[in-house]
Design a binder for these strands. Sequence first.
DNA 1: ATGGTAGTCTAACTA
Length: 256
Amino acid sequence: MQIASWNVNSLRVRLPQVLTWLEENPVDVLAIQETKTQDPGFPLEEILDAGYRVVFSGQKTYNGVAILAKQKPEDVITDIPQLDDPQRRILAATIAGVRVINLYVVNGSEVGSEKYAYKLDWLEKVIAFIEEEKSRHEQVVVLGDFNIAPDERDVHDPEKWNENVILCSQLERSALEKLCALGFSDTFRQFEQEEASFSWWDYRSGGFPRNQGLRIDLILASAALSSVCSFSRIDKTPRAWERPSDHAPVIAEFKI
DNA sequence: ATGGTAGTCTAACTA
């Protein structure tokens, strides 16, 4: 079973790229973030025609998450009891017995800001939700745009992207560690990887051609899945396409 | 360089 995640930065703009990518990479599950699409305008037909089922939770202009899957998504959750939040950032579904939790984690703007406080509160509540989900399911994948670079290896310039900077701050990283301590493994780090492997490059100042990026898109797996993970990688190719998302897709395979 | 680019939607926000 291959499971992927991609922040597409507007599904309407990126739909042709998503469909092309799925033809070349016929994964079983694709978790999408930043659809920026309200549910009535969701491109349902095009995705069904591509042979995928789909569930989604969108809003106007910002955020929005979707899960595309070859098999039927069941027990879909868009809201959690811990958080009364109009922002569409969470989508959980069970696909072929695997609990898939798709997250578009809050960016947080800058350390110390109101948005940063919201990010930390959001993370705490989502982690509590995931703990409950994990007690109910053996095979769990938590994936998406985490807007957190786990450690120094995941930033192009650790001097610039230090522990006082958004996406890298101590409190963000310890929240991620707390999540992993529930029994999740960052599948990317289970394998030998090239140095300077990133999943996001700022549109500004030629980030991609200079490989000035961060690895903030993650696929975390519970022990039952991480033990059967055969690869986990970043596919940089769509980032080099014309009019790309600022994120590249990430893929992991589980031999189940 | 308190810049730069992209998306949503035409002003200003979010990233």
